[in-house]
């Protein structure tokens, strides 16, 4: 690793060495440790630019999108109705109640323009909740907040 190659990689991948080519990373770390102030100043400048780019973050997908995608899977449903989860998976009663509330609310939120099977929507909402999916968790939180 020499300065020319270090600067080339810095200009392409930025300051975070975790993004650098795997076979050059260790050499880059060693080089940076012993680099001149001038090189380190350039590295710091690239690091601040990386922070700027990092302001552009992922946005959580909507529940309707998750539901539509699961609905397109045409996979045979293996999840029982929400009340059955209590006996089948030994869930505490509060989780079952929350799952039912989330399922019913999702059914209302999604709407029935084409008269889909409402039990299908409830099952997917339950799947999202049981699997710990972000949309399902957010939905449960919203339901709990509404009940306060």
């Amino acid at each position: 690793m020499n300065e020319a190659r270090f600067m080339e990689l810095l200009g392409a991948y930025g300051a975070d060495l975790a993004r650098w080519p795997e076979d050059e990373r260790t050499h880059a770390e060693v080089f940076l440790d012993g680099a001149s102030h001038r090189v380190k100043d350039v590295w710091e400048s690239e690091r601040s630019f990386d922070h700027l780019l990092a302001l552009e973050k992922d946005v959580p997908p909507s529940i309707s999108l998750e539901t539509a995608i699961l609905g397109s899977s045409n996979i045979r449903r293996h999840v029982r109705r929400p009340l059955d989860l209590f006996g089948r998976f030994n869930l505490p009663r509060w989780a079952t109640g929350g799952a039912l509330a989330a399922s019913l609310a999702l059914g209302l939120a999604v709407g029935y323009a084409a008269e889909p099977d409402p039990s299908l929507e409830q099952d997917y909402a339950t799947l999202l909740t049981v699997s710990g999916g972000g949309a399902g968790s957010m939905f449960l939180s919203a339901m709990n907040d509404a009940e306060r």
């Binding site: 998750e66 699961l70 996979i75 293996h78 997917y124 699997s131 999916g133």
Partner: peptide, 23 residues
């Protein structure tokens, strides 16, 4: 498991990868 028809696996796959795909 998704290929074998496991709906919970499908939900987990969605949870795991959908944010990145949308992003």
């Amino acid at each position: 498991r998704v290929g074998a028809g496991d709906s919970r696996a499908a939900a987990e796959l969605v949870r795991r990868h959908l944010p990145r795909m949308v992003g």
